[in-house]
Simulated scan of single mutants.
Amino acid sequence: RPGDCFAALRHLLEDNHEPRKRQLRYIKHTIALYRDLVETGIVTRLDSPAPDGKRVELSIDLPENFALTNPLSAFAVAAFELLDPESSSFALDVVSILESTLDDPRQVLMAQRKVARDAAVAEMKADGIEYEERMARLEEITWPQPLAEEIGFAYETYKRGHPWLANTPPSPKSVLRYMLERSMTFTELISEFGLQRSEGVVLRYLTDCYRALRSGLPMTAVTEQIEDITDDLGDLIRGVDSSLIDEWETLTARA
């Protein structure tokens, strides 16, 4: 936007009815986000104001609706650069990085872990493995975590320059990716993991995935396959309950 963005942000953060303590918390958070944007190379501060008054400019190509929706959004942008765009799994890997930055849908992850452990127990019993060893091995079995090692390494590297993220690690998981790899419907996911009492949790999580796909990707990560995934996910969510997407799209249209 033209004009002095720092003055505009100061006005937004201080000229409101929030208590001063809360204002200061928002100011600190905004400064941390700005540092993230600069240090990850997303924005560059200009040596002198541009003719239209701009003090910063974008350094990479971002969609108009790009948004930093959570503390790890800038980390995700940096992590996308580590992926190989020519890889057949590129789109799914983009999804995995995005999923790792979202809040955990605990009921889903616990259900995935239970299914994985039940299958492992049956296999170990068939192999004649003793009870104590079975229990020890089960501790190592959790929900699917694609790219966990790569995401963890990227985060540790990124954290060195962004110490304020030390308490906000990514959380690798595979809910949307799991569905995509198996061409699953919402109903099939619910049925496979016995999530009938947690449908709302699943739907909200998938909506978070949709929002991240729509507004959290740099153009370098947006491929035709990603666009198809986004469109199909939007259709899936609308087929279950359109209100979550409709409300979000109304809000973003006003922004």
Rank of each mutant, 00 (worst) to 15 (best):
R1F: 01
G3T: 06
A8D: 00
L9M: 09
L13Y: 08
P19D: 14
R22H: 01
L24E: 14
T30Q: 09
I31M: 10
L37G: 03
T40E: 09
I42A: 14
I42C: 13
V43H: 04
T44Q: 07
T44D: 12
R45Y: 05
S48W: 05
P49W: 00
P49Q: 04
A50R: 08
P51Y: 00
E57W: 03
L58S: 05
D61M: 04
D61Y: 09
D61T: 10
P63V: 01
F66H: 02
F66E: 01
L68Q: 01
L68D: 00
N70R: 15
L72R: 01
F75Y: 12
A76P: 06
V77P: 01
A78I: 00
L82H: 12
L82G: 04
L83V: 11
D84Y: 02
P85T: 10
E86R: 02
S87Q: 00
S87P: 00
S89V: 10
F90P: 00
V95D: 06
S96P: 00
I97V: 12
L98M: 07
L102R: 14
D104G: 05
L109R: 15
A111W: 08
V115R: 14
A116T: 05
R117Q: 15
D118T: 07
E123A: 12
K125D: 01
K125V: 03
A126T: 03
A126I: 05
E130F: 03
E130P: 01
E130R: 08
E132M: 06
R134K: 05
E139M: 08
T142H: 08
A148K: 10
E150T: 03
I151T: 12
F153D: 14
E156Y: 02
K159W: 12
W164H: 15
T168V: 09
P170Y: 08
R177G: 03
E181A: 12
R182G: 07
M184N: 10
M184E: 09
M184Y: 06
T185Q: 15
F186M: 09
S191T: 06
G200A: 06
A212Q: 13
R214P: 06
L217R: 08
Q225A: 13
Q225Y: 11
I226D: 07
I226W: 15
E227T: 05
D231H: 10
D232Q: 15
V240A: 11
D241P: 14
S242N: 04
L251K: 14
T252Q: 11
A253T: 06
A255L: 04
